[in-house]
Computed example of a mutant assay.
Amino acid sequence: MRFVDDVMRHEQVVTEKKPFQMPSGYAGRVVQIEVAGTSPVRQMEVAQSVSELI
């Protein structure tokens, strides 16, 4: 889940290891990302663009 200024703005189910983009248009002072699942999360990366991750 993605929160911007304490308001949930996006929720997404991830089933692959491929990079994905979150929707734009939610500017704010504080951005929080929450990860939950049934398997261990080994790594998570956040960047301004997908190209920064490659």
Rank of each mutant, 00 (worst) to 15 (best):
M1K: 04
M1F: 08
M1C: 05
R2D: 08
R2T: 08
V4N: 05
V4I: 15
V4Y: 10
D5T: 02
D6K: 03
D6E: 14
V7Q: 14
V7T: 14
V7S: 09
M8S: 13
M8E: 15
R9F: 04
R9Q: 14
R9I: 10
H10F: 13
E11V: 12
E11T: 10
E11R: 11
Q12E: 14
Q12H: 13
Q12G: 02
V13F: 09
T15W: 12
T15M: 11
E16I: 02
E16L: 07
E16Q: 12
K17G: 15
K17H: 10
K17W: 13
K17F: 11
K17A: 09
K18T: 13
P19H: 03
P19N: 01
P19L: 06
P19F: 04
P19I: 03
F20M: 08
Q21A: 15
M22Q: 04
M22L: 14
M22I: 08
P23Y: 09
P23Q: 12
P23H: 06
G25E: 03
G25C: 01
Y26D: 05
G28P: 06
G28L: 01
R29K: 12
R29D: 13
V30P: 00
V30N: 09
V31K: 02
V31G: 01
Q32A: 05
Q32H: 06
Q32G: 00
I33Y: 15
E34H: 07
V35M: 14
V35P: 00
V35S: 03
A36S: 14
A36F: 10
A36T: 13
A36H: 07
G37R: 08
T38F: 03
S39N: 11
P40R: 14
V41T: 12
V41W: 11
R42V: 06
R42A: 03
R42P: 00
Q43H: 12
Q43G: 05
M44A: 13
M44L: 15
M44H: 01
E45A: 11
E45I: 03
E45D: 06
E45Q: 14
V46W: 05
V46C: 01
V46H: 02
V46Y: 07
A47L: 02
Q48D: 14
S49Q: 10
S49P: 00
S49M: 03
S49K: 10
V50M: 07
V50K: 10
V50Y: 03
S51W: 02
S51G: 03
S51I: 05
E52V: 01
E52Y: 06
L53Y: 09
L53V: 04
I54C: 01
I54S: 01
